[in-house]
């Protein structure tokens, strides 16, 4: 029987926590709750960056964990809360897709992600740990589902941010040696993308008096 090391046990526990938060995004219809869930998920990824950094003695990852904590647990959620004050507080959901059905779909997608990663003939635990790859893919795919099923501009921004959290988890667990400067660039990129998203959300609210993206269906063909 193979025993887990402490870092593996931490990574496994955080993987489960990340996936549960991702599922909870589909359960909640209140924007404030979505922002809190995003902050919680960001706290988990900052923690795993710190844990991997300490166990591997990677100072880059420890520094990135600090920056992630400041940017994604404090600054971005505060900015999103300010933005959400200008728009409706509840997230609309499309007809025929209720919360239960959304969760079933998400669970199915997670299952597909886990089975896909498990079915790949990868060398388990050596260079590409399958469980971490499965978690990364599951977070990314469920993030796509949130963006599709929640036609609210801010909810879609949060979906984008949780996808980025999944990618950050993948970077830390699958490619911990990726240069520090790349990690910083990824973080800066996300911050800039959020500012651009915010510009578009404000324009949408001023034009349509709503943050529903259902109105954005004029262009076709």
């Amino acid at each position: 029987m193979q025993h887990l090391t402490i870092p593996e046990a931490i990574a496994g526990t955080i993987s489960v926590a990340l996936l549960l938060v991702q599922l909870a995004l589909l359960r909640s219809l209140v924007l404030a709750e979505l922002i809190t869930l995003y902050a919680a998920q960001s706290l988990f990824v900052a923690f795993i960056s710190l844990a991997v950094g300490i166990t591997e003695r990677e100072w880059d990852l420890i520094a990135l964990a600090m920056l992630t904590f400041v940017a994604k647990v404090i600054v971005l959620p505060a900015y999103m809360r300010r933005l959400s004050r200008d728009i409706s507080t509840r997230v609309e959901i499309p007809e025929r897709i209720n919360v239960t059905l959304s969760l079933i779909l998400a669970a199915a997608i997670m299952g597909v992600a886990i089975l896909t990663a498990g079915a790949l003939p990868l060398k388990t635990g050596e260079f590409l740990p399958q469980a971490d790859l499965a978690t990364t893919l599951a977070i990314v795919f469920v993030g796509f589902l949130v963006a599709i099923l929640r036609p609210n501009a801010l909810a879609q921004v949060i979906a984008f941010l949780t996808i980025e959290n999944g990618l950050y988890f993948g970077t830390v667990t699958l490619a911990p040696g990726l240069p520090f400067v790349v990690g910083i660039l990824l973080l800066v990129d996300v911050l800039i993308a959020v500012v651009v998203f915010a510009v578009l959300v404000r324009t949408l609210v001023s034009q349509e008096a709503s943050a529903s993206v259902d109105v954005l269906q004029r262009l076709s063909g």
């Binding site: 590409l128 790859l133 993030g143 879609q156 040696g177 349509e208 954005l216």
Partner: peptide
């Protein structure tokens, strides 16, 4: 309104696509 719709769809779809691109970078690194 058309410009706003196009910009929103563009950044959302392209960013989701690039998320998969980053998965490619991570997997290649591993």
């Amino acid at each position: 309104a058309a410009a706003l719709e196009a910009a929103w769809k563009y950044i959302l779809i392209a960013s989701c696509g690039l998320a998969l691109g980053l998965v490619a970078v991570i997997v290649l690194y591993a």
